[in-house]
Simulated assay, not measured.
Amino acid sequence: MATSSRHDSGKVCCYLHPDAPLIEDYRAGDQICSECGLVVGDRVIDVGSEWRTFSNEKSGVDPSRVGGPENHLLNGSDLSTMIGPGTGAASFDAFGTAKYQNRRSMNSSDRALTNSYREIITMADRINLTKAIVDRANNLFKQVHDGKNLKGRSNDAIASACLYIACRQEHVPRTFKEICAVSKISKKEIGRCFKLILKALETSVELITTGDFMSRFCSSLGLKNMVQRAAAHIAKKAGDIDIVPGRSPISVAAAAIYMASQASEDKRTQKEIGDIAGVADVTIRQSYKLMFPHAVKLFPEDFKFVTPVEQLPPM
Rank of each mutant, 00 (worst) to 15 (best):
V306H: 14
I83E: 06
F299E: 02
G37C: 10
S105P: 01
R27G: 08
I120M: 11
H171Q: 14
V227P: 02
W51P: 00
I45G: 00
D212G: 07
M106D: 08
R216L: 05
G41Y: 09
K237R: 15
F141N: 02
S264P: 03
V252E: 00
P63H: 08
S220M: 09
G68K: 10
C36D: 14
F92W: 07
R27T: 14
N128M: 11
V282F: 07
Y117W: 03
L163Q: 09
Y288G: 02
S109Q: 12
Q228A: 02
S287W: 02
K224T: 11
R103Y: 14
A256G: 05
H294G: 01
I185L: 01
G191W: 00
D8Y: 09
L198V: 05
N139K: 14
F305T: 04
S64G: 12
G84L: 12
P63A: 09
E272W: 05
R118M: 07
I127P: 03
S186C: 02
R43D: 15
G147T: 12
G239H: 09
L198N: 10
S160K: 03
G239E: 13
A230G: 11
D78E: 15
F92M: 00
A161W: 06
V39C: 10
I284Q: 00
Q169S: 07
H7M: 07
H7N: 07
N107F: 05
I83N: 03
L38P: 00
L113M: 11
K99W: 01
N115E: 12
F305I: 02
R216K: 12
S264R: 05
A2K: 14
E57R: 14
V39L: 06
P293E: 04
A277K: 04
I250H: 00
K304P: 00
A166N: 02
S55K: 13
T114M: 14
D135R: 13
L198W: 04
A2R: 11
I23N: 05
S287F: 01
G41H: 09
D135L: 14
T130V: 05
E50M: 15
G60Q: 10
G211F: 11
D266M: 08
G41N: 09
F292K: 13
G222S: 08
I158E: 05
K267S: 11
I165G: 11
N56P: 00
S105H: 15
D125N: 15
G191Q: 15
P313E: 02
Y288F: 14
T87K: 13
K187F: 00
S59C: 15
G191V: 04
K236M: 11
D266N: 13
D135G: 02
E272C: 08
G37F: 07
T81S: 11
L140F: 13
S219V: 01
R104G: 06
